[in-house]
Design a protein around this nucleic acid. Structure first.
Lengths: 157, 157
DNA sequence: TTGACTACCATGAAATCCCATGTTATCCCA
DNA sequence: TGGGATAACATGGGATTTCATGGTAGTCAA
């Protein structure tokens, strides 16, 4: 299967890239390939639970909007809060011909990113972290996972 | 049954291959045939519980991502952490025209692999081990099997 | 006109591809 | 059944491409 022909939408692996003085970062080539293939835009917003940047495809944002619609009654407080946190904060980030986006001050500050950005694959989505912050978070998660039961149902077709 | 016509997805047997200076290893020909036939990619990540490399198909990873997608609440926080850890650690390993992949430093280190890699079939999945480490592990497992009696439930398909 | 933002070009490093070779396994015929 | 021919496979090395990143020019708005 050639590179331009991925069968699945899966953001995997972690990649460390540099952030220059202008706030520019290269999107890892394989992530970019996925986005281009899906013909969708990259959307980013501040995580409201962790010090990192949440990244989605435009398509997933749309799905999220529908899900929220269906989960809460219109004009409920919850819906208001959620939509406020997500959609008003989110922004599309088109990349240039070399595959870079320009992160905003708001996002960089929230994630505590200065000159290094860590891209973390989460399956359907990915996140951008300050490398040191993520290191700590990862150890914590790994510890939790080890202590609890391993109940991953192995998915087979 | 000819070579291109395996009926089942079963990784069997163990194969010892060389790892060269670039980290390249040949995937055993029969494993490769299975993957090609299923039209899926090879995905690998560090085992959580053992010093070895876990290998799956993209398809299995895709299934996992879909499950998470569809079950906001079905997955506990622990499992969410766990799957997050897996996706962020996992990486696709496409093989070149001669059937080799390039293992990363991270994976090699975790498994303690330097110049030899042992491919161990596990049915739906397989693992890659340092040969010596696996030798010890295998004796241990065999011992356990003697002492306890394993019961495999006959399966719902 | 100046400042900020965006699009394009250049370069070095790193990952990937492809050809060549030796070795092992398989096949076929005597 | 044995032994040589043939094909498949694992492995080594070099050539090529891709990618991240620094820099520059061009554009729009204030």
């Amino acid at each position: 299967m050639g590179k331009g022909q991925k069968k699945y939408l899966l953001f995997l692996d972690t990649t460390l890239n540099k952030v220059d003085a202008k706030g520019r970062v290269s999107i890892p080539a394989d992530y970019r390939a996925l986005l281009e293939q899906q013909e969708t835009e990259l959307v980013a917003f501040r995580s409201f639970t962790m010090p990192c940047i949440e990244c989605r495809t435009s398509e997933m944002m749309e799905k999220m909007a529908t899900d929220i619609d269906n989960s809460f009654s219109a004009f409920s407080n919850e819906q208001d809060d959620l939509t406020g946190l997500i959609f008003s904060d989110a922004k599309e980030f088109p990349f240039d011909s070399t595959g870079r986006i320009v992160l905003t001050e708001k996002l960089l500050k929230h994630a505590g990113i200065t000159d290094k950005a860590l891209f973390v694959g989460k399956g359907r989505t990915f996140q951008i972290w300050n490398p040191d912050t993520y290191q700590a978070k990862e150890s914590e998660m790994r510890q939790n996972a080890l202590e609890k039961h391993f109940n991953i149902k192995n998915g087979e077709a």
